[in-house]
Amino acid sequence: MPLIDVIQALAIVVAWGVNFVVIKWGVAGVPPLLLGALRFSLVAFPAVFFIKRPALPWRYLALYGLTVGVGQFGCLFTAIKLGMPAGLASVVLQSQAFFTLLFARVFLDERWQRSQLIGAALALLGLALIGAGKGGGMTALGFGLTIAGASSWAASNVVVRAMGRAGYRVAPLGLVIWSSLIPPIPFLLLSWQLEGGEQILAALRGFNPQSLFAVVYLAVVASMFGYGLWSRLLTRHAAGKVAPFSLLVPVVGLIASHLLLGESLSLAQMAGSGMLMAGLAASVFGGRLVSGWRALVASRA
């Protein structure tokens, strides 16, 4: 991969890692479900007038928008508002990779590789350690909602795989922008029902530069810039060369949350985070390492 593309991949990693800190800033002044509505509204408009709609039925756009939008970010924003540390959220959310394996097995009948099973076992132990660990102000509800957000992200991955099986080839940026038309209304309805009209009006009246920065960053930097550049890299290089960079997102998330929010993890949370990331690395790289080792042994035989 050329150096310029490596730099671009690292820029995306930084943007997505800092994203968790910005969410923390955002929910400090805006109720989380209202923040979700504002974020996806800004992603969709005015971009839908300039980006071509993906050539796939609306049901896929709706399913993707509801799972990755309302499900993932609704749970994540609320989790961080209710006490989930931003840095730890960036780690726990990566458990989506293992929920994806589970859902793909159930709904798409995909087979598991041994390395994926080993990775899933490590990740499960890591989540157990994180859940049992005390420190950083983490609440049980915040932790549970982050897990729910990870499972919603996994569901959106299965929706994308189902699109591919149905013969649709969709540009990621177009999918992100057009599916963003779906979440705002459910978010507003949920915000009105759960957060209340008074909180919504108070947040809009007191909308300050920090809230504006959070909405713009989440929509423009994390979503449009991040996914747009990511999709460009995927068109230039094999997914196996690009995807491993995402393993650095929680590393950036932990560092950024420590530097900008003063967050720190307990020993159990640190051990659990390390175990979860080791499981993710085993799942991503394990199959290649085994294949490479077998090829090396065969060449020397």
Score class of each variant (00 low, 15 high):
14 V>Y: 03
37 A>M: 02
157 N>T: 03
169 R>E: 15
102 L>Y: 02
49 F>R: 01
195 E>I: 01
157 N>D: 10
266 S>P: 06
127 L>R: 09
175 L>G: 10
246 S>L: 14
295 A>N: 12
39 R>V: 09
140 A>G: 09
285 F>I: 09
233 L>F: 13
201 L>A: 15
41 S>T: 15
210 Q>W: 13
253 G>F: 04
271 A>R: 00
28 A>H: 14
27 V>Q: 09
110 E>Y: 03
183 P>I: 01
51 I>E: 05
2 P>F: 03
186 P>K: 07
228 G>E: 04
104 A>H: 01
234 L>S: 12
146 T>S: 10
131 G>S: 10
78 T>P: 12
159 V>R: 00
168 Y>L: 03
278 A>V: 02
136 G>M: 04
210 Q>N: 11
261 L>D: 11
146 T>G: 04
177 I>E: 01
117 L>P: 11
107 F>T: 07
158 V>Y: 06
194 L>R: 11
205 R>F: 00
100 T>D: 00
153 W>V: 05
56 L>A: 15
13 V>G: 06
116 Q>W: 08
133 G>N: 02
8 Q>M: 14
271 A>W: 04
284 V>G: 05
284 V>P: 01
6 V>S: 12
89 A>L: 05
185 I>G: 01
94 Q>F: 09
199 Q>N: 15
12 I>M: 10
139 T>R: 10
92 V>S: 05
51 I>T: 01
273 S>T: 11
280 L>G: 00
184 P>S: 06
118 I>C: 11
184 P>C: 00
33 L>R: 04
284 V>N: 09
249 V>N: 12
60 Y>K: 09
179 S>N: 06
12 I>F: 05
203 A>L: 09
122 L>V: 08
275 M>S: 13
202 A>Y: 00
121 A>P: 09
149 G>H: 09
10 L>P: 03
61 L>V: 07
93 L>H: 08
17 G>M: 09
280 L>C: 01
41 S>L: 15
183 P>S: 05
240 G>P: 07
245 F>K: 04
22 V>R: 10
82 L>M: 15
1 M>P: 12
106 V>D: 00
201 L>I: 14
